[in-house]
Design a protein around this nucleic acid. Sequence first.
DNA 1: ATTTACCATTGACATATATCAATGCTTTTT
DNA 2: AAAAAGCATTGATATATGTCAATGGTAAAT
Lengths: 192, 192
Amino acid sequence: MYDLFFQKFNEKVPLTKDEEGFFKTYLTPKKLRKKQYLLQEGDPCNFTAFVEKGALRSYTIDEKGVERISQFALEGWTIGDLYSFLTGEPATYQIDALEDSELVLISKQAHEELLKKAPKYETYMRLQLTGAYIAMQRRLTSSISFSPEERYIAFSSLYPDIIQRIPQHMIASYLGLTPETLSRVRSKMTRK
Amino acid sequence: MYDLFFQKFNEKVPLTKDEEGFFKTYLTPKKLRKKQYLLQEGDPCNFTAFVEKGALRSYTIDEKGVERISQFALEGWTIGDLYSFLTGEPATYQIDALEDSELVLISKQAHEELLKKAPKYETYMRLQLTGAYIAMQRRLTSSISFSPEERYIAFSSLYPDIIQRIPQHMIASYLGLTPETLSRVRSKMTRK
DNA sequence: ATTTACCATTGACATATATCAATGCTTTTT
DNA sequence: AAAAAGCATTGATATATGTCAATGGTAAAT
């Protein structure tokens, strides 16, 4: 049930079996059907979710009803609304399942207790955040400096598994393009 | 010399005077003249720099010689190339001073020792990173979803001090615009 | 004090991307 | 099995932004 979670955790911070057992008491499993919400806009996000199986996305909807996807999460990734999680403010993102999924949740309460009781958890969190920060910086640079075609190419080579599993118009949304533009970019690429 | 550094540190993680004294032994002061480099592309970034006084920027230069500013840092901010700092890889960013500046450096070596010896330092780092992550997420959303005018307005209200002190064409670069476009956006705004 | 570098603005024009609309295909729902 | 929904593609057109070039002002360097 928590296999992948502990595999990833151990890659960052090695744990003994006893420690794993201790951590397990703070984790909550959750299953989600495709299209089901994990988090609705306006609710406070009182968890982070690790994806054992499946695929999710976080996104906003603007005044015109256009979806803006801010993040995908496949197996081994973590997803949530960090700002809301840390501040208790209502979430600005919505999260739902793109496929039937199995998650491992860490509630805000568990998070706070673990920070107090388990130094290894704080280290894990720091490393998680570091990775997320670097990935986001790369994406920001890409968004500001690169053309749609360059962004799509970079995305494809970084996340080939997402290209396989996720509808193209969602990738367009993630890249900040219209579906039409992405379609044209792709057709221009294959013609080359 | 380290006044602002410890003020900000204490806001995140309170320290006793003794602890401050302990931390001080790991810090290095540095002064920089306007236009001087703190970090050149290709050198590994073996420090993070806290700005006591002055202003800096980090940026890349693309094949065409165009500067892309990725970050500004005024008093109380921290700047560096986190990826390079953590991995030891050559830096992808350059950093230089926009005004005469006074910095507090934490070397990579100091960073690693502090992580081992001072749990409060790890907490401080985690909180720093969390804040940086949230700020970057906001900026990314802004970059993908908002028009140049909206981006400029958001930036102005978030960082009025930067608007005051930094040349406009650098703000354009940060926002991912040409200087001409930013100029026109501004003139359209005032005409309203 | 003079010269030089830096900077913001404006105009004319080119180009990339969005928007609106229609079509056919595939998958899901009933 | 039929209907509906979701999706990718393509065309025509509009709009926003970039590019190139010129100007005048201001601050910095000599």
